[in-house]
Design a protein around this nucleic acid. Structure first.
Length: 581
RNA sequence: CGGGGAGUAGCGCAGCCUGGUAGCGCAUCUGUUUUGGGAACAGAGGGUCGCAGGUUCAAAUCCUGUCUCCCCGACCA
């Protein structure tokens, strides 16, 4: 493709609405154009990369014996009423009516449609298992679309659905997809982690999320450095802490210490010449119409979701108003589990009870207590796991490793659905005894456009994108530095044809710009290999090759240029056969 | 939905307070000179100032309403 014929207007300046790197770089390279909030046109450059990702997905799913189909994006309300989601899905489901006043929605996902297909077409256990997938635009009316393609309202998704005769074969389908996903993201040239996730409302099932690791990721992931366990920090399990032994009868009582104006854990710890992990902090929340306290060690963060779940409330806020503190005799900045007001339930993290002695506040202005023995002194309404896991915590699975922390972008999820939809929509088959059975389902999603955004989040530098070769829009940027020089033009043409006949995709910069802007643009667009042909080095019979990722430059004879580039592309993983990954 | 910010040329911005009919940089087009890490000069095109009312002799500017976009939070496959 000739740059002079390719629709791409790069920007020197960053459009002000873009705040994350993938959004900025996609705007600057003319990959996407915003039409409305969370709704984008994929320009030719972006679409080429999307097609590469799709091709990898198709190859790997075909290998896993999945079948591609295409379902309508517009779906009738009746199907959603049948599954119960017309009510349950909420405002994220974009609904509308046709001229006959019939209800429709734009598909945010396709469980209803695929289950309808399955119940019509699959009648016998001999027809199972089946795995059907599509790659299609989805629409979800997100509360707050943001970050370009990272969280759009309309986005390209691969969604697959498996149907099995029972739990056991469903598990096999699930793990087959899990393995396919690992191959897909590996082949996309991405660094990722499969992460255990919470099955949420659908009890008894299991699910994994696939996260591309990137510092800008929205999710924090904890991963064991010894075994395979990895989980979103919100639901990472913790090794339980056993309570400390009861103290001897003659153990000393807590000592009251004057700590004027030392309100934060850091201040108190510093003042008392100790560390936050020796001090107990206590927070007070309003959950509905009740006030509750929560105590945990000072270096910990409270897992609010756990406390909300325990209290069975959807919302919970930190208490900040003086009136409430006063009403319960609480002293902000000096709240502790000792002398705790009886009318306020107090939940204490088990880690606190595992300590022999701790420092706490004493519910008295400007005073803390040292030498508090939790087993003797703290009267908890309930001891439970309130703390969030964090890097360094022992792994609860293997009991040998410790957690490491990563930031990740969720690009895929595999989910064992069980019979949620097959039950409600009556998707059944006849087993070998002629008895009617409910199919067992799984669903499997990959955010294709989000994967592309995540690839950029993970692979860029200050100059621009650094495309993994497998999903790069083109493989080579061929820069003609002197379009008025016939020899340079001929050399470019020869390299262009040579690379193309070897299967490499080349974007040849044949514009009459000066070399400087061409170099800047090539770095910005970030194709894996740059080939620079100019009259200066061509006089010596040479051209220059640069590897975008490493910055390495080689001067090579024109005659060997094509071979050199192909070699470098292969080193970068181009044409790696699927079996090698 | 709560809080904050912004809509003026394709992009980035100034002008608004103090009303007088729109400007700068980049980009685009023409020409000349340049040509290996975002060139210089000369010229040109392009904007109903988000939209609708109102005040006024006169509105980008003041007032009212409204729409859109972005950020933080809540929420979320």
């Amino acid at each position: 493709m000739r740059r002079s014929r390719f629709l791409i207007n790069t920007l020197k300046e960053t459009p002000k609405e873009a705040v994350v790197v993938s959004h900025v770089l996609m705007m600057r390279t003319c990959m996407i154009k915003q039409l409305a909030s969370g709704i984008y046109t994929l320009m030719p450059l972006a679409l080429r990369s999307v097609r590469k990702i799709e091709a990898i997905i198709r190859e790997e799913l075909d290998r896993a014996e999945c079948q591609e189909l295409s379902m309508p994006m517009v779906q009738p309300a009746e199907l959603w009423t049948e599954s119960g989601r017309w009510q349950a899905y909420g405002k994220e489901l974009l609904r509308f009516k046709d001229r006959k006043e019939n209800g429709y929605c734009l598909g945010p996902t396709h469980e209803e449609v695929i289950t309808d297909i399955a119940r019509r077409e699959i009648r016998s256990y001999k027809d199972l298992p089946v795995n059907l997938y599509q790659i299609q635009n989805k629409f979800r009316d997100e509360i707050r679309p943001r970050f370009g393609l990272m969280r759009g309202r309309e986005f390209l998704m691969k969604d697959a659905y498996s149907f099995d005769v029972d739990e056991e074969t469903c598990n096999a389908s699930y793990w087959s997809m899990y393995e396919a996903y690992k191959r897909i993201f590996t082949r996309c040239g991405l660094t990722f982690r499969p992460v255990e996730a919470d099955s949420g409302a659908i009890g008894g099932s299991f699910t994994h999320e696939f996260h591309v690791l990137a510092g800008s990721g929205e999710d924090e992931i904890l991963s064991c450095n010894n075994c395979d366990y990895a989980a979103n920090v919100e639901r990472a399990e913790l090794a339980s802490v056993s309570a400390a032994a009861a103290p001897s009868a003659d153990a000393t009582a807590p000592q009251e210490v004057h700590t004027p104006a030392k309100r934060t854990i850091e201040d108190v710890a510093a003042f008392l010449e100790t560390t936050p992990d020796q001090c107990v902090k206590t927070l007070v929340f309003r959950a509905g119409d009740q006030i509750v306290g929560a105590s945990l060690m000072g270096h910990r963060e409270l897992n609010e979701a756990v406390l909300r779940g325990r209290l069975d409330v959807a919302e919970m806020d930190l208490v900040t108003d003086a009136a409430t503190f006063e009403k319960h005799g609480l002293c902000p900045g000096f709240m502790g589990p000792i002398n705790w007001p009886e009318d306020v339930p107090l939940f204490v993290d088990e880690e606190v009870m595992g300590r022999e002695t701790v420092v706490t506040a004493g519910n008295k202005a400007d005073y803390h207590l040292t030498g508090v023995i939790p087993a003797r002194d703290i009267k908890a309404t309930e001891v439970m796991t309130l703390r969030s896991a964090r890097a360094g915590d022992a792994c609860p699975r293997c009991n040998e490793g410790a957690y490491e922390s990563f930031r990740g972008i969720e690009v895929g999820q595999v989910f064992k659905l069980g019979t949620k939809y097959s039950q409600s929509m009556n998707a059944t088959y006849l087993d070998a005894e002629g008895k009617e059975q409910v199919m067992v389902m799984g669903c499997y999603g990959i955010g294709v456009t989000r994967t592309m955004a995540a690839a950029i989040e993970q692979n860029h530098d200050k100059d621009g994108i650094i495309w993994p070769v497998q999903i790069a829009p083109f493989h080579v940027a061929l820069l003609n530095l002197d379009v008025k020089d016939d020899e340079v033009n001929e050399a470019c043409e020869a390299i262009f044809k040579g690379l193309r006949s070897a299967g490499a995709e080349v974007l040849i910069d044949d514009t009459p710009l000066r070399p400087g802007p061409k170099f800047k643009d090539a770095d910005l667009i970030g194709l894996p290999i740059q080939v620079k042909v100019g009259s200066r080095s061509l006089k010596q019979g040479n051209i220059e090759v640069k590897v975008r990722k490493t910055g390495e430059r080689r001067t090579v004879p024109l005659a060997g240029a094509v071979e050199e580039v192909l070699g470098l592309l292969n080193e970068l993983g181009w044409n790696a056969s699927p079996g090698q990954v």
